[in-house]
Design a protein around this nucleic acid. Structure first.
Length: 183
DNA sequence: TATACGATCACCT
DNA sequence: GGTGATCGTATAC
């Protein structure tokens, strides 16, 4: 079942904690790619120095200020894209970064010599799912191209671990927050 | 108009 | 462990 706006329109940490174990679905024409989310990070509020939104509202970060359930896609290092999902109410800048996804192909197709493929890193996730700026600001509650499903029962809450966020050494005290969730 | 740098990855030592 | 690739964005002139 597809996650509704109700799911995303809650506290960012709650959404980030519950997303691991859910399924990211990407439809391109007739082809569908499905992967289980295995790692997320929360970025929330004006004061979080690790969040792009701490610099204020700009054309780039506008999506993060928008309604919950929208995809926030941005380019990093000129070569990679990162996928985020906007959370909380419109006007409050918050999002959950999808850091890692495990592809379990339902048809059993071999991917990279293995049946299962772990996409550990937001850049790899976006490369595999063919996510780029065109998907920025799409409504994941309604889009026919990108959304998240819940199948239920696969992951128990006690399998989800938490830790410090990664790659944000510049964020001062904010870098030590335990806002990263993974399986 | 120009410049510096980043929520990364791959490849080098 | 360290660094180059490579470009959109923010910030500074």
């Amino acid at each position: 079942m597809r996650l509704s706006k109700k799911f995303y329109n809650r506290k960012t940490l709650t959404v980030a904690r519950e997303l691991p174990g859910k399924y990211l679905v990407r439809r391109i024409g007739r082809k569908t790619i499905v992967g289980m989310i295995t790692e997320t990070e929360a970025y929330c509020g004006f004061r979080d120095l690790a969040s792009h939104a701490s610099k204020g509202l700009t054309p780039r970060t506008k999506t993060m200020f928008g309604p919950a359930g929208h995809a926030y896609v941005y380019m990093i290092y000129g070569m990679y894209h990162c996928l985020n999902i906007v959370t909380e109410k419109e006007g409050y800048p918050a999002a959950v970064l999808i850091r890692s996804v495990a592809i379990n192909d339902r048809q059993g197709t071999v991917v990279d010599g293995k049946k299962n493929k772990l996409l550990n890193g937001p850049g790899k996730v976006c490369r595999e799912f063919k996510i780029d700026k065109k998907l920025n600001a799409v409504d994941m509650c309604r889009s026919g191209e990108l959304w998240i499903e819940e199948h239920g029962g696969e992951i128990k809450p006690n399998q989800i671990k938490k830790g410090k966020r990664i790659g944000i050494d510049y964020a001062g005290k904010w870098k030590n927050k335990l806002w990263r969730f993974y399986i």
